[in-house]
């Protein structure tokens, strides 16, 4: 396992890193980045990022806005092309996963539902066109039930609340049983209570399905509540790589988590002084 900063090695020694992931069924894809770089014109957004994410791990990427965290996620799922280095995704059986294939899914801050398709139709978008219609409908209905919207399949998206729309978007991403789920601040536009609800839902489906999850967020508390491992991105590089070893389900207000949150926030605002 390629881990990069002195900090993260210390952390890794202090706690068993991937114990949680190893216990789950091998349903995830592993992600390996080698010397990844992305520049927009003269601006170097990401510089030489090395990273290995083992299959089934839940990784959160935090950083200030403009630090390159969303760019990193878009590169991993193939929405953008790197200007240097390379990315390898491999599924559990060893096969390569292509972005745009049913093995890699992304959820955005906006639900991006098709307003002219009913809720079930939107979930079926996640299944492609290869399956027979009846089977697609059955899977869509089942996936909607998993996100507690089983009775809303026949509605237009415009009548749903913001949290419900994001749940439909989650169902669409999950419908094909992805090995890698990328989450680009999916809860950023939701109110605080709906957000906690959604965090629990995401954690639940991740534990059930065992995919690899990469969550980009600006909410450090959210990262700590959900992730096995937190990457702090600053000025285009991984400034810290931390393990969250607390058992699940995690309780908000746990002093250990609060201390970790304090350390991460210190790292974000003053990485020299924090000494992590």
């Amino acid at each position: 396992m390629a881990i990069h900063t002195a900090t993260s090695r210390r952390q890794a020694a202090a706690a068993p890193v991937y114990a949680g992931a190893a216990a789950r069924p091998q349903g995830g894809a592993s992600v390996t980045l080698r010397g990844l770089a992305r520049a927009f014109g003269d601006k170097q957004v990401l510089r030489h990022v090395d990273l290995h994410i083992p299959a089934g791990q839940f990784v959160a990427i935090v950083g200030k806005s403009g630090c390159g965290k969303s760019t990193l996620l878009r590169l991993i799922v193939g929405l953008d092309q790197p200007t240097g280095g390379h990315i390898a995704l491999s599924g559990a059986p060893g096969g390569e996963e292509e972005p745009g294939s049913s093995g890699v899914r992304i959820m955005f801050q906006e639900p991006r539902l098709l307003p002219w398709e009913r809720v079930r139709g939107n979930v079926e978008v996640g299944l492609g066109r290869d399956l027979p219609k009846a089977e697609r409908q059955a899977i869509a209905t089942r996936t909607l039930e998993a996100v507690a919207l089983g009775d809303r399949g026949g509605e237009w998206p415009s009548v749903l609340s913001g949290g419900q729309k994001q749940r439909v978007a989650l169902a669409r991403a999950l419908a094909s049983g992805p090995r890698l789920l990328a989450l680009d601040e999916p809860l950023g536009a939701l109110d605080a209570l709906t957000r906690i609800d959604m965090q629990r839902l995401i954690e639940k489906v991740w534990r059930e399905q065992g995919f690899t999850a990469i969550l980009v967020t600006h909410d450090v508390g959210e990262a700590i509540a959900l992730a096995d491992r937190i990457l702090v991105i600053d000025q285009g590089t991984i400034a810290a790589d931390l393990v969250v070893a607390s058992p699940r389900p995690r309780h908000r207000g746990d002093p250990e988590l609060a201390a970790l949150e304090g350390r991460i926030i210190d790292a974000l605002f003053n990485d020299q002084a924090a000494g992590i």
């Binding site: 049913s102 899914r105 991006r112 996640g126």
Partner: peptide, 26 residues
Amino acid sequence: QLVEMGRIYGMKQGELFWRVILPGAL
């Protein structure tokens, strides 16, 4: 954003037109 979503979900040109672009332009 919807067009990007369609692409990520593997829609080919024809499907993208009929399911995303034309209904959006209607």
